[in-house]
């Protein structure tokens, strides 16, 4: 994860980047909650939407692991499959916590 390059790419200064990170941490936390409860109740549409939101946010900030996992999860959910979804969601949350810890 090369934050310096990322910040440059987006044309933001450090303060702005921290502000954006704060939004990422906040919205992704709630998207993850939404994702995991959707999986528990077997709601594929909600699962896809939550995964889509996480994918977009992670992609924009260059968190590629989360992006790829969320993307796969979204695609499967759109095909009405939640196979392995709970496990992927858990891994995404773990990756997310690692990033969030660095910025807290």
């Amino acid at each position: 994860m090369n934050f310096k390059k990322l910040v440059e790419n987006l044309g933001l200064n450090d303060d702005e980047f921290l502000e954006v990170m704060e939004i990422f941490i906040r919205t992704t936390a709630s998207d993850l909650d939404r994702l995991q409860s959707a999986i528990v109740v077997g709601d594929t549409r909600q699962t896809a939407e939550a995964a889509h939101a996480i994918k977009g946010a992670a992609g924009n900030l260059g968190f590629n692991e989360i992006y790829e996992m969320a993307k796969a999860l979204e695609e499967k959910a759109r095909e009405n499959s939640l196979e392995g979804a709970a496990k992927s969601a858990k891994t995404i949350r773990k990756k997310y916590e690692e990033i969030a810890d660095k910025f807290r």
């Binding site: 987006l10 044309g11 933001l12 702005e16 502000e19 954006v20 939004i23 919205t27 939101a53 946010a57």
Partner: peptide, 16 residues
Amino acid sequence: DDSPLSVALLEKMLRK
């Protein structure tokens, strides 16, 4: 955009 992050990023880039 429904994603607050996308909105924030674009907004910052463009306001600048």
